[in-house]
């Protein structure tokens, strides 16, 4: 069984990069464009791990993570925050919202896969 990754990012560029990187690394990838869509597809996608951006329209990464954590079924799913924000304040907020870990952009395939493997069995 391939591991399933749900990615949530509003940037088409980053979505495509995630898709290519994750598919190449043998993951199954489901993509959402913002937090609202992320929560909508969550049940159906039934991912093993979530990678999400912070700055997004409609519902940002913080809100999305909180939404996932409120869901009994997914409250313990690993969530990685993919964002250019490297300052401690933003990381802290993401952590408080329930993020498992983070990947600091610029986007680097090795870092991404490394981080995913760290939080998944």
């Amino acid at each position: 069984m391939k591991k399933k990754v749900l990615t949530v990012d509003d940037s088409r560029t980053i979505r495509n990069m995630l898709l290519v990187t994750l598919n190449n690394a043998g993951f199954e990838t489901i993509q959402a464009e913002d937090g609202v869509e992320g929560l909508e597809v969550l049940e159906e996608a039934n991912p093993d791990v979530i990678v999400t951006d912070i700055n997004m329209p409609r519902l940002d990464g913080f809100g999305f993570i909180e939404g996932v954590r409120r869901n009994e079924k997914y409250r313990a799913i690993p969530i990685l925050v993919l964002t250019t924000e490297s300052d401690a304040e933003k990381k802290n907020r993401a952590r408080q919202a329930g993020a498992t870990g983070w990947i600091v952009k610029p986007f680097d395939p090795t870092k991404l896969i490394d981080a995913i493997e760290r939080v998944t069995a």
Binding site: G35, V36, L39, E40, E43, R58, L59, G63, G67, V68, R70, N71, E72, K73
Partner: peptide, 23 residues
Amino acid sequence: TETRSAPAAQQAAAAPAAAAASA
């Protein structure tokens, strides 16, 4: 074990609902 319990289901439903509102 708790997935099917009522409060949990409500909670699960609440999240998308809140999201939909902001949407």
